[in-house]
Design a protein around this nucleic acid. Structure first.
Length: 1090
RNA sequence: GGGCGGUUAGCUCAGUGGAAGAGCGUCGGCCUUACAAGCCGAGGGCCAUCCGUUCAAACCGGAUACCGCCCACCA
């Protein structure tokens, strides 16, 4: 006995049933086989910092949709899932909790204990994330999921680091970095958020030492960070202040000449200001330049340190006093100035890693930088050296992770060289894809533009194209070296052991190294005399001799990089005994996620790749390819626009470097989800929706349906958000609700009580966030559910008989023709990455044509024994195809209904029987059958629909009860009577008509209402109300008149007739005839009414 | 400072040169034996503004206004 389809659609129960089946039968398992068509998506790995929100849901649903579609197309499809350890973010979260709950810092509990706690955190959130993704129906091969710090990914990280180091593409250098004083680590430029704050501009005065007669006795400088003056090592003025100022004036005038109105006033004021400076500032500046050239010094106040006056173009005569203090240790621009004047000025670091001042700050040592600022300002003021304080809005960089202010800070960091290098970079070394690129960044640029193709003939294309490709290329084009070290404990520790040695010890260490250097998993560098050289077994003697020769106390640094498994075994210990120390830093998260597309597949050697218990092996199985050779290079990357640079670019260059081929050929950038106010959705802003809350309320398929429908080409999506009031359980519109005591609490409009949207307030009840926009999806699923239910009630003994479509009744041929069109269109829209258009096409076919017309048309047939069979067969087939079309979008309900359909109508098809596997997930994608398309038939049915609508309209206008059948006369001639007769039964049943008379000279009765469809006049008898009819006819006349005038005007225009395409003119002429006849008919009837 | 989007019905958005579209919401009528989470109808827009190109512009070009994004810089 087949399962009944319940009268009510219950997404929760159904989704649970189907999820269980998937878990048991594993229809998404991917294994290399004979199939040479493959489709691979690597999931943008979510961070284990926290649970997923709607933005992730969009990302996952897009990937799942593409993967499921390709699986149905017959591809061997792999969707690789996994999570990212997200170094800095996760450590920050865990450290924050540690402090909040236990009052301890990471240094209190130590490296090992902290890392242990982070692992616990990771387990907890990874579980949560995977359960969210499974609730979303993600068809990943769950037996292959990975984590960036698991054994396989870790090995890939160490191998890559090792190769880059060996190729001198990784180096250590002193750089100005953004220092997070709270987390005590360097953070990347991308991890900085600039915020505008009300600050000040302090004008300071430094006295000149021993000014000559006539010379200035002091120099003024301005700063937004007065405490940095303690690290000043020079004051700079421009080498040619007059020239620079004049040039600036000229440039500003040029800008004025092409400025828009709104900027004019501002620019004019600027020019005036600059011109005034010729008088107010220039003389002093020129004097200062001369003094600088003469080697004059100034005295740094408070510390009493003499510092030189120098000339450098960094000083801008148009700004401030025209002179600038130089703090090379704490300002990136000043650091560059230092680079140009190294022999003349020094660098002083005044900060400790925690943001307090160090012993270079003299009396200010030990103060926090913010306290030091106040004291410095106060002291300068008391000495009369503070000229002015100006209020000014300034942009301050904050660390995205700790939300604290970052400081420019000079430190030793590890970098990957992104620029071009002499001799180029060998990509895919040791593979069949070897090629030489100018540099890593250039390799990634080439991959996305021009004629470049990888050895396998691939390149990268973006969807949508121009906008995002530009983002990618312009970022890479800067070729800035990539700072990969982070002063954290959570992550892949840098596999470098180093030691500084001198003289005899140095010579001994070099000799000791000899046996290691011949090993494949050890590489060493010698840094000496400002040069770096990779040590070779045969160069050791030369170095040892060289040291003896130059200086017996010569010092040098030896850096040793160990590759797996040398790190794990005794080798590392041997180096430590020998006095080498492992670098304490860990690698930037993006270093490991950049390897994701190949590390997860077992690179560099799938056969020896470590897997977790229960996981599928990566190496060769049953004579098939290993996973890496089979699934790399992959197909498509699906992500948001925010990580194009951080991640997409890095995956491309890492893939090219390690394997000589691209990780994917298509990059699909989907929309970013915003809230109702247009703000980006995020958990911490209190506007982040948990997909699970949506799934609970509306069902997963409903959520997916709406997400797909929202995914058009535009760059962002507004999703108005409601909170479910914990007091009334009703939705509250957050755009309208009043706030409570904080910005994260709102007042329930009905009860007046306060609730919290972050879920972090101890005393305030938390509210779930939802969006009512997902209702549409639930409505749709309900419709689909009921359509199949209806069919099943009528499909009791359906069997398959091959039938030629031409033998079928015209409504059957019509729906097959429309279906053919829909299939082709859905296919096309998916190919061009337009999920919204694809799902809308499928929806319109299903709802507006199959349900609204076809089902209604065949209802009478289903009740008649002789005709029911063919109707059932076409109905079963149509629903089969509809379910297949929707499977990639709404997988749960389609799978469930598919199984029910198979229980009632196991054999389905029209001219041939379809293959119907147990789960629709493995079914074949519908094929458009061009032979079924019949344009003439579609036109005839279109006409019948118009006639039916016209009658329905009249019925509605006169509120004729649905059960009351009406009599209709139709005045027409030519071919139309035939069409009308063909559709007669449908007109009668669908418009509730009792009888229709068709005649070329049909007459309306005095009590009938009139409608005009093309050349056809329709009279609905016995319903009229003269006044109402007059109003109705007038309305229709009015509606026609405007467009009619437009067409007349067009056709009266000679130029239109001569220049427009002939078919356009023809169309307009036909239109005119049609409209005029309609209009005259309407007028006639109006007159007859009197 | 440089670059890039957007502005279409009350809301959320489609629409790449030939009579303005969808869903939701609104209004009217229907519990018509699949579906009231539904059915049948209706109303609603000088397509942000201005100027061009064209026989013809929501669509192409230029300018303006307002939203927004990215990059760089900010003593």
């Amino acid at each position: 006995m087949p399962n009944e389809v319940a009268a009510h659609y219950d997404p929760a129960g159904l989704e649970k049933t189907i999820a269980q089946q998937w878990a048991e039968t594993k229809p998404f398992a991917a294994t290399p086989d004979e199939n040479d068509r493959r489709y691979v998506i690597m999931m943008p790995l979510p961070n284990v910092t926290g649970a997923l929100h709607m933005g992730h849901a969009m990302d996952n649903v897009m990937q799942d949709m593409l993967t499921r579609w390709h699986r149905m197309l017959g591809d061997n499809a792999l969707w690789m899932a996994g999570t990212d350890h997200a170094g800095i973010a996760t450590q920050a979260v865990v450290e924050k909790r540690l402090f909040e709950l236990e009052g301890k810092t990471r240094r209190d509990i130590g490296r090992e204990a902290l890392v242990g706690r982070i692992w616990d955190w990771k387990e907890q959130y990874q579980t949560r994330i995977v359960s969210q993704q499974q609730a979303m129906g993600c068809s990943c091969d769950w037996d292959r999921q990975r984590f960036t710090m698991d054994k396989v990914c870790e090995r890939a990280v160490y191998w890559t680091f090792f190769h880059l180091f060996r190729d001198s593409l990784i180096f250590r250098g002193t750089r100005m970095v953004n220092w997070d004083c709270h987390l005590q680590t360097a953070v990347a430029d991308d991890e900085i958020i600039y915020e505008s704050v009300q600050g000040h501009f302090w004008h300071l005065r430094y006295p000149v030492i021993d000014p000559q007669p006539g010379e200035l006795e002091s120099v003024a400088v301005a700063t937004t960070r007065p405490e940095t003056m303690l690290g000043d090592t020079a004051v700079a003025c421009h080498p040619d202040p007059r020239g620079a100022l004049e040039e600036l004036i000229v440039k500003t005038k040029e800008r004025l000449s092409r400025a828009s109105q709104k900027d004019t006033a501002e620019l004019e004021a600027e020019i005036e200001r600059l011109e005034k400076r010729r008088v107010t500032h220039l003389p002093q500046l020129e004097q200062l330049t001369a003094m600088a050239e003469a080697g004059r010094m100034v005295r740094l106040p408070l510390l009493d340190r003499p510092i030189p006056l120098i000339c450098d173009q960094w000083a801008k005569p148009g700004l401030g006093s025209g002179c600038v203090k130089i703090t090379p240790g704490h300002d990136p621009n000043d650091y560059e100035v230092w680079g140009r004047h190294q022999e003349q000025i020094g660098i002083i670091n005044i900060l400790n890693i925690d943001g307090t001042l160090n012993d270079n700050a003299g009396p200010y040592q030990g103060l926090d930088r913010f306290d030091a600022r106040e004291k410095v300002v106060a002291d300068l003021k008391s000495q009369g050296l503070l000229e002015a304080i100006e209020d000014r809005e300034i942009e301050i960089g904050h660390s995205d992770r700790s939300k604290t202010r970052v400081e420019p800070y000079l430190s030793e960091q590890w970098f990957v060289r992104m620029g071009d290098v002499d001799g180029g970079v060998m990509c895919g070394r040791g593979t069949q894809n070897e090629f030489v690129a100018p540099g890593l960044a250039q390799a990634a640029i080439d991959a996305a533009q021009g004629e470049w193709r990888s050895p396998s003939g691939r390149n990268v294309s973006f969807h949508p194209d121009i906008r995002y490709r530009n983002t990618y290329i312009s970022w890479l084009a800067e070729k800035r070296d990539w700072c990969i070290s982070r002063q954290l404990w959570w992550g892949h520790r840098i596999p470098i052991w180093s030691g500084k040695f001198q003289g005899r010890v140095l010579q001994e260490k070099l000799a000791w190294l000899a046996p290691y250097l011949s090993r494949a998993d050890v590489v060493a560098q010698l840094q000496m005399d400002e040069t770096t050289e990779v040590l070779q077994p045969d160069s050791l003697e030369r170095h040892i001799a060289h040291i003896a020769q130059i200086d017996e106390n010569a010092g040098a640094q030896i850096l040793v990089c160990l590759r797996e498994p040398a790190i794990q075994t005794d080798t590392a210990g041997e180096f430590e005994i020998a006095g080498f120390v492992r670098d304490p830093d860990v690698l930037d998260t993006w270093f490991s996620s950049g390897l994701w597309p190949h590390s997860t597949l077992g690179w560099p050697d799938p056969d020896t790749a470590a897997i977790d218990p229960g996981q599928s092996p990566l190496g060769k199985q049953n004579g098939a390819d290993d996973c890496l050779s089979y699934y790399y290079p992959g197909s498509c990357l699906v992500t948001g626009r925010d990580i194009i640079t951080l991640w997409v670019a890095r995956m491309v260059l890492m893939g090219l470097y390690n394997l000589g081929d691209l990780p994917f050929t298509d990059v699909f950038i989907h929309a970013t989800i915003m809230d109702g106010k247009g703000e980006r959705m995020s958990k911490s802003k209190g506007n982040g929706i948990d997909p699970v809350d949506i799934i609970e309320r509306y069902g997963c398929d409903a959520m997916r349906y709406v997400l797909c429908e929202m995914q058009t080409g535009s760059q962002d999506i507004r999703l108005p958000i409601q909170a479910i009031s914990p007091f009334t359980n009703k939705p509250v519109d957050l755009a309208k609700a009043e706030h409570g005591s904080t910005i994260f609490t709102y007042l329930c409009p009905e009860s007046g009580k306060e609730f919290d949207v972050l879920g972090t307030m101890p005393d305030v009840p938390a509210a779930k966030l939802i969006s009512e926009r997902f209702e549409v999806g639930r409505h749709f699923c309900n419709k689909l559910w009921n359509a199949v239910r209806f069919a099943l009630l009528n499909l009791e003994q359906t069997s398959f008989v091959p039938r030629a479509p031409t033998e079928l009744p015209f409504e059957d041929r019509w729906i097959l023709s429309r279906l053919t069109r829909a299939i082709a269109e859905v296919q096309h829209q998916l190919e061009v990455y337009n999920p919204s258009a694809a799902i809308s096409t499928a929806r319109d076919f299903f709802w507006s044509e199959l349900c609204d017309w076809y089902l209604e048309m065949i209802k009478p047939r289903l009740r008649e024994a002789g005709e029911a069979d063919s109707a059932r067969q076409v109905l079963a087939f149509s629903l089969d195809q509809v379910l297949r079309l929707f499977q990639p979008f709404i997988p749960f309900i389609t799978d469930f209904l598919w199984q029910r359909l198979s229980e009632h109508a196991a054999q389905r098809g029209i001219d041939r029987q379809l293959h119907t596997p147990e789960s629709i997930a493995r079914a074949q994608w519908p094929q458009a059958n061009p032979g079924w398309q019949d344009d003439a038939l579609e036109q005839r049915v279109g006409f019948l629909q118009e006639v039916i609508r016209a009658i329905r309209d009249i019925r509605s206008q006169y509120t004729v009860p649905p059960k009351q059948r009406v009599q209709v006369r139709i005045k027409t001639s030519g071919a139309t009577p035939e069409i009308l007769n063909e559709g007669m039964s449908h007109i009668c049943s669908l418009a509730s008509v009792e009888s229709v008379e068709i005649a070329p000279d049909a007459k309306r009765t005095h009590d009938s209402a009139t409608a005009v469809v093309g050349e056809v006049e329709i009279y609905v008898l016995g319903v009229i109300d003269v006044d109402k009819e007059r109003v109705r006819l007038n309305g229709q006349i009015k509606k026609l008149t405007g467009p009619l005038e437009g067409v007349r005007k067009k056709l009266g225009n000679q130029k239109f007739l001569s220049r427009a395409k002939p078919e356009v003119v023809e169309r307009e002429r036909a239109k005119l005839v049609d409209m005029e006849s309609q209009l005259s008919t309407l007028n006639e009837h109006l007159q007859e009414l009197g």
